[in-house]
């Protein structure tokens, strides 16, 4: 949901505090958010387009970007399905333990990503609970792309669920009743009536989930093994460049990631604006 959606109250003449709150807000945003981001943009501009392209198109950077985008895409598909299932079950059914199941959806946001990464790594390593079961079947998760996908999908679980839930709750039951009274089966009603109504919210959740996965760092570094060309993600490559004092390299990779994130933010806002304009039918 965008903060920009509701209009402000016109009360300039009456209420005090404009100068104070304007000053503090501007000061905070300038020092904490704006100047650091400008520093990155200027560093990027200073590199120059030719050198920037060299860094971004270098084999190791390309591999890292490909691994990051692939893993984030798969993780997002998993969460798109899982999130829809969870939102549906939590909104439509009443059963013992529903409240707990609902609260559990927030674990990945409350739990520090480093802790999630630590636990998943131990759990899926050869002598962990899940790893011991998967290893004899020849499935290795830790230090593979699978591990990266697992970590990314864990840390972005809440996005789709929490995006779809409120819309599903507000959906007008009359629509479904009309559909079924006209002879539509449960699946047809879902596909033709319910899903189109929740799709904008679902897509919004999917987009933020993807954006988050692209930038995820803490959980992934534990489980990935971080081998260049195999399991090295883009944000880790940026981190490694910093440790090598290669500030240009780090800034270039960071810029690519930032531009990707901003494009996704823009797309997500576009989906929501369209949804607001052509409105989902709600009660």
């Amino acid at each position: 949901m965008s903060l920009a959606s509701a209009p402000p109250v016109r009360a300039r003449a009456v209420l005090p505090g404009f100068r104070l709150t304007f000053g503090t807000t501007l000061l905070y945003l300038t020092v904490i958010v704006l100047i650091p981001i400008i520093a990155l943009v200027i560093e990027g501009a200073g590199i120059g387009p030719a050198r920037l392209w060299d860094i971004v198109s270098a084999p190791r950077t390309r591999a890292a970007l490909r691994i990051t985008i692939t893993a984030a895409a798969v993780a997002t598909v998993i969460n798109a399905v899982y999130g829809l299932l969870m939102a549906w079950v939590l909104v439509r059914y009443r059963f013992p333990g529903r409240g707990l199941l609902d609260a559990l959806m927030d674990i990945p946001f409350a739990l520090p990503t480093a802790v999630a990464g630590l636990s998943l790594t131990a759990l899926y390593s050869a002598n962990g609970w899940f790893g011991a079961v998967l290893a004899p079947m020849g499935i290795q998760v830790v230090y593979t792309l699978g591990g990266i996908i697992l970590a990314m999908s864990f840390t972005s679980i809440p996005f789709v669920v929490r995006a779809v839930q409120p819309v599903l709750e507000k959906l007008d039951p009359a629509l479904e009743e009309a559909a079924s009274s006209l002879g539509a089966s449960g699946w047809t009603t879902f596909r033709r009536v319910i899903f189109p109504a929740i799709m904008p919210a679902w897509l919004g959740g999917v987009t933020t989930s993807f954006a988050r996965s692209l930038g995820e760092f803490g959980a992934v570094v534990f489980i990935a093994g971080n081998l260049p060309f195999k399991t090295e993600i883009a944000s880790l490559l940026a981190y490694i460049r910093l440790e090598e004092y290669d500030y240009e390299g780090a800034a270039a990779v960071a810029l690519v990631l930032m531009v990707l994130a901003l494009v996704l933010l823009f797309l997500s806002n576009l989906v929501q604006i369209r949804a607001a304009r052509y409105g989902a039918v709600t009660a």
Partner: peptide, 17 residues
């Protein structure tokens, strides 16, 4: 903005500054 920008990018921004 900070919701969309990965913290690792924020860290790099601060280091550059």
């Amino acid at each position: 903005l900070p919701f969309s920008i990965s913290p690792i990018i924020a860290g790099i921004c601060y280091l550059l500054l």
